[in-house]
Deep mutational scan, measured.
Amino acid sequence: NKEHILAQKEVLTPIEYEHYVKHLFDIGEITKELYIELSS
């Protein structure tokens, strides 16, 4: 869920976080809207 993803932002580097969010989007775990929101 969104809270879990945002928690990852605390422990990952910005680049790792971007890759993580992109991966979730690629596998269909999150919607495009959520992907855009989380990567901003």
Rank of each mutant, 00 (worst) to 15 (best):
T13N: 06
S40D: 11
H4N: 14
L12R: 03
H4S: 12
I15L: 12
T31Y: 04
E10P: 07
A7W: 05
L6F: 06
Y35I: 02
L24H: 01
I5V: 08
L38N: 00
L12D: 01
L34A: 08
I27D: 11
Y20F: 08
K32L: 14
F25E: 01
K22V: 05
N1T: 10
E29D: 09
E3K: 08
K2S: 07
Y35H: 03
Y17V: 01
K22A: 10
E16G: 06
S40R: 11
Y35E: 02
P14S: 10
Q8V: 12
E18G: 08
Y35V: 02
H23T: 11
H4T: 12
K2G: 03
Y20P: 00
K32W: 14
I30T: 01
E18Y: 15
T31G: 12
E18S: 13
S39A: 11
E3Y: 09
Y35K: 02
E29Y: 15
I36T: 11
Y17S: 01
T31N: 07
S40F: 15
V21A: 02
L6S: 05
Y35L: 08
G28A: 03
L34T: 11
E10F: 11
T13A: 09
E3V: 10
E37A: 10
Y20T: 02
I30K: 00
Q8L: 10
E29P: 00
G28N: 07
Y20A: 02
L38Q: 02
L38G: 00
G28L: 04
F25D: 00
L38A: 03
L34D: 10
L38I: 10
P14Q: 13
L38M: 05
K9I: 08
L12E: 01
V21Y: 03
P14Y: 08
P14G: 08
F25G: 01
S40K: 07
L6N: 04
E18L: 15
I5S: 02
H19I: 14
L6Q: 09
I15F: 13
E29S: 07
I5N: 01
L6M: 13
I36Q: 14
L34N: 04
G28P: 00
K32I: 12
I15N: 13
D26E: 13
E16K: 05
S40V: 04
E3D: 14
S39T: 12
V21S: 01
Q8I: 10
I5Y: 09
L12Y: 06
E16V: 05
K9L: 09
V11H: 10
E3Q: 13
H4P: 05
H23Y: 15
K9P: 01
Y17N: 01
E29N: 11
G28T: 01
F25H: 03
Q8M: 13
T31D: 12
E18N: 10
G28E: 03
V21M: 06
K22H: 10
V11K: 10
E33D: 10
Q8A: 08
I5Q: 02
L6R: 06
E33Y: 09
A7H: 06
N1Y: 14
E10H: 08
F25L: 11
D26G: 05
S40N: 07
H19Q: 15
E16D: 12
H23E: 11
I5G: 01
K2V: 13
H19T: 14
E18R: 15
K9V: 05
I36R: 09
Y17Q: 01
I15G: 13
E33S: 09
